[in-house]
Design a protein around this nucleic acid. Structure first.
Length: 465
RNA sequence: UCCUCAGUAGCUCAAUGGCAGAGCAACCGGCUGUUAACCGGUAGGUUGUAGGUUCGAGUCCUACCUGAGGAGCCA
């Protein structure tokens, strides 16, 4: 009979080999139920979603003490692992000895009942100990790994785009300013503007709103690359789908057109879903039961069906023929509103759908102009429940077209000299997209607020923890 | 930033303008295998904040704060 320290995950995954052995486990008490002679502890050691049941009896010298322990007490348990085929859990530990490693207190805010996500958000330092957030953050970790696996297996180079950047005017959103200037004594230029030449970098810089332009540098050297990094938007947008700091995945592929681009998106999403659901079946069962009924069926449907495709122009026709009325007008040249996107994804297609070839005037300057002269090779992936999950395009690789577009937008050419120069020296056609990682997690877990899929969410007026 | 709704015990929620209430948690006790255990008892409140109306405000009015849902912007 050997005594060995084991993880709860190992106990569940290798139950047959471990049953009958004496084991040692370490973890935190999630719940405790005790009568005069017998007690039960649900022990969680952080390695696994489910708890391990510990049974302890009067034969233990410290039975009385253990019976009164509050939730979150850290303990070490030595005992016999036995199979319990009739019970809710497959195995349990019959304790021979329990040692208190670190005490807790009865005013511990997490109770053994369901709490609202809003309440748990107020105690974000403790919420990873709840079932919901334990599952969410495990999915976050595995999904991030799965994305890396997908691109690494296909030979993509992982690029670290800069976090501090001076390229601003790509229209992606307001930047957070990065400065070391004395805010109580700001240097001024003769015309009373802020004199950024005296700032740390000698110019006006901020936190990156996108790594795309830098990713293009590397795509035109390494062919297939991706970035995966924090991104910052200083927009005062207070919704369940926006955060000031979020993670974005941005692949960029040389010699690839819009069709290639969309194939990668579809393959990638199916890969991440398949991999993560296979690794974390208990977590997904939990989401499907308590967070978003029908989630598993919906995700299986995504994995097993082909994504929809529709051009913007076709989408406008579909919306005009819709059997429901919209608050906002449907007209060619106006961007799709949330209600339109929801109608397309949730009513017409009922699965992820690519909308392509938008009017050039409602899209970014770097998107490739189509031969019709009025649309660009852009694509948005709309998914039921979340909305826009991916936005991408074939980039404008023709020097003269790009230069003209930058001029039309009124941008300062000095900020884009290197971006234009990429087109001058072997600037082959290339494409890429951006995936909001938190939106993917929302879609995968059914969690409806972005604040609940980020460890420490940053939103307007909120930077606690 | 705009619109709508909400804020009462640690948590989830009741209370016609007229006595501040329940379940769970906590605490004390009971119970021989529990599964959000069960049974009995005890304690727990400046009703988000600041004003106002009223004989009387948790309830009505104003402003602000916080949260939720929706919208704009986007990922």
């Amino acid at each position: 009979m050997n005594v060995s320290l084991v993880k709860v995950k190992e106990i569940y995954r290798q139950a047959e080999e471990l049953v009958g052995q004496e084991v040692t486990v370490q973890g935190w008490i999630r719940t405790l139920r005790a009568s005069k002679t017998t007690g039960f502890i649900e022990l969680n050691d952080g390695t696994f979603f489910r708890n391990l049941q510990i049974v302890f009896g009067q034969d233990m010298s410290n039975f009385e003490e253990i019976s009164k322990l509050p939730i979150a007490t850290a303990i070490t348990v030595r005992g016999l692992l036995v199979a319990t085929p009739e019970a809710k859990q497959p195995v349990e530990v019959q304790a021979r000895a329990i040692v208190v490693e670190a005490p807790s207190h009865s005013d511990y805010p997490l109770q053994k009942k369901r709490h609202s996500p809003e309440y748990l958000r107020e105690i974000a330092h403790l919420r990873p100990r709840s079932n919901l957030f334990s599952a969410v953050f495990r999915v976050r970790s595995v999904a991030a790994y799965a994305l890396h696996r997908f691109f690494q297996e296909r030979g993509f180079l992982y690029v670290h785009a800069p976090i501090i950047t001076g390229s601003d005017a790509e229209g992606a959103g307001e930047m957070f300013r990065v400065t070391t200037l004395d805010l109580l004594n700001i240097p001024r230029t003769p015309d009373n503007q802020v004199d950024f030449s005296q700032d740390f970098f000698g110019k006006k810089v901020g936190l990156s709103v996108s790594g795309q332009l830098e990713a293009e540098i590397f795509a035109l050297a390494f062919r297939n690359v991706y970035t995966f990094a924090p991104t910052f938007r200083a927009e005062n947008s207070n919704t369940a789908r926006h955060a000031a700091e979020f993670w974005m995945l941005e692949p960029e592929m040389a010699f690839a057109d819009l069709q290639d681009n969309m194939r990668v998106v579809e393959d990638m999403l199916k890969y991440v879903l398949t991999y993560t659901m296979k690794e974390l079946p208990e977590e997904f069962a939990f989401f499907s039961q308590f967070v978003d009924p029908g989630l598993l069926e919906r995700l299986d449907n995504v994995i097993n069906s082909d994504f929809g495709h529709v051009t913007y122009t076709e989408a406008i026709e579909l919306l005009k023929q819709a059997d429901q009325s919209f608050v906002y007008p449907v007209e060619w040249g106006i961007d799709l509103q949330t209600e339109h996107e929801r109608y397309l994804a949730e009513k017409v297609f009922q699965k992820p759908v690519f909308v392509t070839d938008y009017p050039k005037d409602i899209k970014a300057f770097y998107m490739r102009l189509n031969d019709d002269g009025r649309t660009v090779a852009a694509m948005d992936l709309l998914v039921p429940g979340v909305g826009e999950l991916v936005g991408g395009s074939q980039r404008e690789e023709r020097y003269d077209f790009l230069k003209k577009r930058i001029e039309e937008m009124g941008f300062d050419m000095d900020d884009y000299w290197w971006y234009l120069e990429l087109r001058k020296y072997g600037g082959v056609k290339h494409s890429g997209f951006g995936l909001g990682f938190e939106r993917l997690l929302m879609y995968m877990t059914g969690v409806s607020n972005i604040r609940d899929v980020i460890p420490c969410p940053r939103t307007p007026g909120n930077c606690e923890f």
